[in-house]
Nucleic acid binder design. Structure first.
Length: 600
DNA sequence: GTAGGGTTAG
């Protein structure tokens, strides 16, 4: 009976049965515990797991291999790797499954080096690796050369035709930053199944190659490969970043037609997709129809309002949520960032404090990052710094990143240097950090320091993908980088931009050259403002979309202050609604006003 | 009648 429930993914009932069994004095045997321990693992109930572990000892099954393996796996699921290892070390007999389970426990706990070491230790003891052990060790691999080594073992053991192994190999390579190799392997597989396709799509999405992800999905449809809701989830995520409203409509239609079971998961992904494609209205419609709103769907909708600069509505929704669903850490990220995007200082603090007081949630680094962002954007850099000093944990790169971003806005070199010092350790591989600091130096005329940072970045062999702006017109996606001349309409765009800039100057636009280099003459600086990718995209949109349609562009980095101001004026003189989205939020420009209020 | 191992929303 216990097995029957467990096999059907019902994990709490068998625990009840187990307790009844004990109460009426029936002695569990060595077959009982593997099931019960599995249930504990799935329930993530550490207390229960430990009680059952005691029972195992009381009834004398601690040296049973099967029971031991189950304990190792259970503690791995509890993220108690050291407990897994203790059980593993004390096992009198080990099977290949014991090794495999221990490697899996390491993988689940992020102890990748330990996992790899154990795998090689296992080979040293001349134990033949099983498929399970190889699959588990593959999730520990983070370096390309190791990936190649493991792949050789896969081939040596004749596992290279196995679907689950092939899939893990593809994921392994993409985790090592080599989607290209993953793709080559993928292309070489003849009988690719749905999961393999889905993994490859997901791999592209994870390294932010969204266009490639969508392209592959298109191929999948063309080749008439069946896909399911997991495929759609990856595709929806890729689309969310690309913010294509048209694609959003198509996928939504698809989901409705296919009547998938996992309503809340898919619908939540769709809510996020509509939010990021600019339509709060469509997002809200799905949200309102959702039958079982869980913490994820509420959080998504709240962050949606936040992204669109509608902080008060985000907070209202949060109030409604509290009546039915317990908020979690991520809900508070949504709430606090909504406050930060709308400059709601008092509300931000109130909710930050309520986390622990009302909900028993200890603020994590990411919540401090939101608060630093909120304080920093409004220019309260000293207060932001004070908060960082008071943090009970070591500030992570998110916190310092918020501070550095605020320093860019308010040109504060002192704190920028402080933030950067930590970031160059904590997030040394992220070129954006170097560029930001270098630009802060530049905008204060500190050319030498700026060059030094650029040099450091070069020395560490880091390259930044150019900030670009994307616009979709009639189902086609166009990309612009700074000073772009690759568009066939380039001449026309620049001509029109020049006219437009002159027009908006007459109605009060003052160029903000804080965002350009400081060692050039004023006149050239002004001209450089014409090269911003955001402006090129907007003009392209004005030239090519119908007279009434909304112009929506998306910048992959934060929109600069000058572009923000310029857009406000452009929407005024052209009487057009313009929506600009950057990595963090939407700016809705209508009749020359921006719904986000003051940009900062 | 027992254990491990492929894709999954904020």
């Amino acid at each position: 009976m216990i097995q029957c429930f467990t096999a059907n993914a019902i994990y709490d009932d068998p625990i009840v049965l187990y307790c009844q069994m004990r109460d009426i004095g029936i002695k569990p045997d060595n077959y009982t515990y593997p099931f019960v321990l599995k249930d504990c693992g799935h329930l993530r109930d550490i207390g229960l797991g430990k009680v059952i572990h005691k029972d195992v000892i009381v009834f004398g099954y601690e040296s049973d291999v099967f029971v031991g393996n189950s304990l190792v796996t259970m503690y791995g699921k509890f993220e108690l790797g050291e407990f897994s290892r203790q059980v593993f070390d004390e096992m009198p007999d080990r099977s290949i499954v014991s090794w495999s389970a221990m490697i899996g426990a390491y993988a689940q706990n992020g102890l990748y080096e330990e996992g790899l070491l154990l795998f090689y230790g296992m080979l040293d003891e001349r134990i033949l690796p099983s498929k399970g052990a190889i699959l588990n060790v593959m999730s520990c691999v983070r370096r390309e050369n190791e990936a190649a080594e493991i792949r050789n073992i896969v081939v040596d053991n004749g596992l290279d035709a196995d679907h689950s192994v092939q899939n893990a190999v593809i994921r392994m390579y993409s985790r090592c930053g080599r989607v290209d190799i993953a793709r080559r392997i993928f292309d070489g597989i003849i009988d690719k199944d749905m999961v393999l396709w889905t993994s490859m799509i997901e791999a592209y999405a994870q390294v932010e190659l969204y266009i490639e992800a969508l392209e592959l999905f298109k191929q999948m449809k063309l080749q008439k490969i069946q896909f399911d809701f997991v495929t759609i989830l990856s595709v929806v995520r890729a689309c969310s970043v690309l913010a294509s409203f048209r694609q959003a409509r198509f996928l939504h239609g698809y989901v409705i037609r296919s009547l998938y079971q996992c309503e809340s998961m898919l619908d939540t992904a769709l809510i996020d997709l509509y939010v990021k494609s600019g339509s709060l209205e469509y997002a809200r419609k799905i949200f309102d129809k959702l039958s079982d709103r869980n913490v994820v769907s509420w959080s998504t909708m709240i962050s949606g309002y936040g992204m669109h600069g509608r902080g008060t509505e985000a907070l209202n929704l949060f109030d409604q949520m509290k009546g039915s669903v317990q908020p979690d850490h991520i809900t508070f990220v949504s709430v606090l960032s909504a406050c930060s995007h709308s400059g709601l200082m008092g509300e931000g603090w109130r909710h930050f404090r309520s986390m622990a007081r009302e909900f028993g949630l200890t603020p994590k680094s990411e919540h401090y990052a939101c608060m630093v962002d909120l304080l920093g954007r409004s220019g309260m850099l000293n207060e932001a710094m004070e908060l960082i000093k008071k943090m009970p944990m070591k500030p992570d790169s998110g916190v310092w990143g918020s501070l550095l971003g605020a320093c860019r806005i308010h040109s504060n070199i002192k704190f920028a240097e402080l933030a950067a010092k930590s970031l160059f350790e904590l997030d040394a591989e992220n070129p954006g950090r170097y560029v930001l600091l270098s630009n802060i130096y530049m905008s204060s005329g500190k050319r030498e320091e700026a060059d030094l940072i650029r040099g450091l970045m070069k020395h560490r062999k880091l390259r930044k993908t150019a900030g670009h702006t994307v616009i979709e017109i009639k189902n086609k996606i166009y990309t612009f980088v700074v000073g772009d001349r690759s568009n066939p309409q380039t001449e026309l765009i620049y001509e029109e931009l020049e006219k437009l800039m002159n027009r908006i100057r007459k109605v009060g636009y003052v160029p903000d050259t804080n965002f350009t280099l400081h060692d050039v003459e004023e006149e050239i600086k002004d001209k450089m403002l014409y090269l911003h990718s955001e402006k090129l995209a907007i003009v392209f949109g004005l030239l090519n979309s119908g007279p009434t349609s909304v112009i929506q562009i998306m910048k992959n980095l934060r929109v600069c202050g000058d572009c923000h101001t310029a857009t406000k004026f452009i929407s005024k003189v052209t009487n057009r609604e313009i929506v600009v989205r950057d990595a963090h939020r939407f700016h809705h420009f209508k009749e020359g006003a921006c719904s986000c209020g003051d940009y900062w």
